[in-house]
């Protein structure tokens, strides 16, 4: 695609970069990203990816905006309370950058829909807040041979890694979801809003690097940070030959839905879960 004068100006700070340039910006503009979860991680990621001019951004989320989201989910405003998150996010993205095509799915990812949804995207961004979804996304991206960014936050901590086909997957490190209620959720334990911003923004940077094909991704690395002491660690991880998904004798051959703690999903949002808006 050719950029107009207005687009050259909009993306000038990218184009000036030697590692992005005109060609890199073209790759961003022809790229597509699916953001799963329009919450603490998805919100900053969506804002930066929209501003960066990613050609197509898909957003999937079954929830509506709640007042308690506003402390960190910066794509949603006070006036959006009770509005579907995907609609709120789409409105902001379009205001930031009308170049971006936004596709919304007002539902949650499940074993029977995720493959069909991710197939149209170059890169998947996990911005979910629960283990069943994180394992499902990992497994689906492995089977679909899609690159994705894992992200998780709690209290003052965050962790992220990037998966590309052939490299260490989430299950290589974390075999299966922890027992229910062993790890508290953000709604039980709290999270510093800015921590979501840091992590979601790191994920957005990984997406952009993947699209332009420059630099080192967080593949075979788990980046963790503790914002309370502002310490970052980059831990080398490697493919696990005993991984139940991508190891030598895999036991997982199909997608599965792990049971979700009932308190974490609002029933009214499940019932409206199949509507595509």
């Amino acid at each position: 695609m050719e950029f107009s004068d207005e687009q050259l100006e909009r993306y000038s700070r990218h184009i000036i970069l030697k590692d992005v340039g005109y060609e890199g910006q073209q790759r961003i503009a022809s790229g597509s990203v699916l953001i799963i979860g329009a919450g603490g991680l998805g919100a900053p990621a969506a804002l930066y990816l929209a501003a960066a001019g990613v050609g197509k951004i898909g957003i999937i989320d079954g929830d509506v905006v709640d007042t308690s989201n506003l402390q960190r989910q910066v794509i949603h405003f006070t006036q959006d309370v009770n509005k579907p998150k995907v609609q709120s996010a789409k409105e902001k993205i379009e205001q930031i950058n009308p170049d971006v095509e936004v596709v919304t799915f007002r539902k949650i990812v499940l074993a029977d829909n995720i493959m069909d949804i991710i197939k149209d995207y170059d890169f998947i961004l996990d911005g979910t807040d629960n283990f069943p979804a994180k394992f499902l996304i990992n497994d689906a991206c492995f089977f679909a041979k899609k690159a994705y960014s894992h992200g998780g936050i709690l209290r003052f901590n965050g962790q992220t890694m990037t998966y590309t086909p052939g490299n260490t997957c989430y299950r290589c490190i974390f075999n299966s979801p922890p027992p229910k209620n062993l790890v508290p959720t953000c709604s039980q334990a709290g999270v510093l809003g800015a921590v979501a911003g840091i992590l979601g923004t790191i994920q957005a940077a990984e997406v952009l690097k993947y699209l332009i094909g420059k630099g080192q991704l967080l593949t075979n690395k788990l980046l963790t940070f503790d914002a309370l002491n502002m310490q970052f660690r980059n831990v080398a991880v490697s493919k696990n030959r005993n991984c139940p998904l991508c190891g030598q004798q895999p036991s997982i051959r199909t997608l599965m839905n792990y049971e979700q703690p009932v308190c974490d999903i609002k029933q009214n949002n499940i019932s409206s879960g199949d509507k595509v808006c």
Partner: peptide
């Protein structure tokens, strides 16, 4: 600056 450089890069692309 910097649009003169941006447009030069666009032409070179």
């Amino acid at each position: 600056c910097p649009m003169n450089f941006v447009k030069t890069k666009a032409a070179l692309a």
